[in-house]
Write a protein that binds this DNA or RNA. Structure first.
Length: 112
DNA sequence: ACTATGACTGATT
DNA sequence: TAATCAGCCATAG
């Protein structure tokens, strides 16, 4: 019972639709791991690149990027999001871009 | 066993 | 709006 959680987290992140964003805590909740937002960050950090996770769609609960402003990673994330149509309001992503998953559909998708 | 450390949060000030 | 604080909990050393 430890890194066993990672696949579940990765799968949940895969469900984030193009042009939408979710917070670390939200992913943790959806993955059945309430209160483990930090674990989500960890899981992303160690995720195999072959999974091609939409990591850029995961940000803080206040809709800001988790990486330091101006850092290479933050710049990349920002451009990736912009390229898929995500709208920014200053440093934050527009609230309307948040992902509101249908629980039934999500659980169905995660069965596989 | 203990401490430090996060791609975090929510409440409080 | 912004800074602080206290929880959070799996990992690493």
């Amino acid at each position: 019972m430890s890194a066993t959680y990672f696949p579940q987290i990765w799968q949940t992140i895969q469900q984030i639709p193009l042009g939408k964003v979710a917070s670390y805590g939200q992913i943790a909740d959806l993955a059945g791991l309430p209160g483990r937002a930090r674990l989500v960050g960890k899981a992303l950090g160690v995720a195999p690149e072959s999974l091609e996770l939409p990591w850029q769609r995961v940000l803080r609960s206040n809709l800001t990027l988790a990486f330091a402003e101006g850092s290479p990673q933050a710049l990349l994330q920002r451009s990736l999001l912009l390229s898929e149509g995500v709208v920014f309001q200053g440093k934050k992503v527009a609230p309307a871009m948040r992902w509101h998953p249908d629980l039934a559909e999500l659980l169905y998708a995660l069965k596989y």
